[in-house]
């Protein structure tokens, strides 16, 4: 038998004694202190400590809080604060707690492909960066390559529907000599944009684009009627 095995009973006894001696202090060490006004459940699987092998709940990250685990840890479920009328009526604060009912607020992304060599911008998967697409919108009706760029952007299903809709409807408001007050000098652009809608609206890729084309056409027609053919 190895000497260490022989020592084990002694060490186990010492551990038990130490646990008994520290029984009053234990709650202070292990008490969940997520932040004030939090639910005070103390299930230990909210955050799983792996580096130390201990199943310990997370403690407050605020200064002065207890800190017992040094190494980085993997969190398999993350808890955010919750508030009930019984425990902290009327208050909600962000925090990391051990409430297992709450999870990391990130939805599953399985199936999404990592961005590699997209064109950049906030969404690397789009064919035209949104920032460039909106600049193309400003010159719609005067610049043929801007039109081509804009067309590619509005027909790209990777562009969020709201962006596509804005790219179409905003042609009513953007790109005039005075965007607040288009005047007769802007009539060529207005007519050109009406023709552009007539050309592309029948190919709207979905209802979002279709409705946006209809709204833009109505508003441009109104603008045209107000300004058109004044002599």
């Amino acid at each position: 038998m190895k000497p260490a095995i022989a020592l084990m009973p002694v060490l186990v006894c010492a551990a038990v004694a130490a646990l008994w001696l520290t029984r009053e202090g234990t709650p202070e060490v292990d008490r969940v202190k997520p932040s004030q006004n939090h639910e005070t459940k103390t299930e230990s699987d909210g955050l799983r400590v792996v580096a130390s092998g201990m199943s310990e709940v997370a403690k407050s990250g605020e200064k002065g809080g207890e800190k017992s685990v040094a190494a980085p840890r993997i969190v398999d479920r993350v808890a955010l604060s919750t508030t009930t009328s019984e425990q902290a009526a009327g208050s909600s604060t962000l925090g990391v707690s051990n409430d297992v009912a709450r999870a990391w607020p990130v939805r599953s992304t399985s199936g999404t492909t990592p961005a590699t060599a997209g064109r950049g911008g906030a969404n690397p998967d789009v064919s035209v960066p949104t920032k460039i697409a909106f600049r193309a919108l400003w010159y719609l009706g005067t610049d043929p390559e801007a039109e081509k760029t804009w067309l590619r952007a509005i027909n790209d299903r990777n562009q969020p529907p709201g962006v596509r809709s804005d790219l179409i409807i905003d042609m009513v408001d953007e790109g005039y000599s005075d965007n607040d007050h288009p005047s007769e000098v802007d009539l060529p652009i207005i007519k050109s944009r009406l023709e552009l809608i007539e050309r592309y609206a029948p190919f709207a890729i979905d209802d979002v684009n279709k409705r946006a084309f209809e709204v833009a056409y109505r508003e441009l027609l109104e603008l045209y009627l107000r300004l058109g053919d004044k002599r």
Partner: peptide, 12 residues
């Protein structure tokens, strides 16, 4: 955590 991943980590 990375918003593309489902598993975050905590700081030491």
């Amino acid at each position: 955590g990375d918003v593309r991943a489902e598993t975050p980590r905590t700081t030491d």
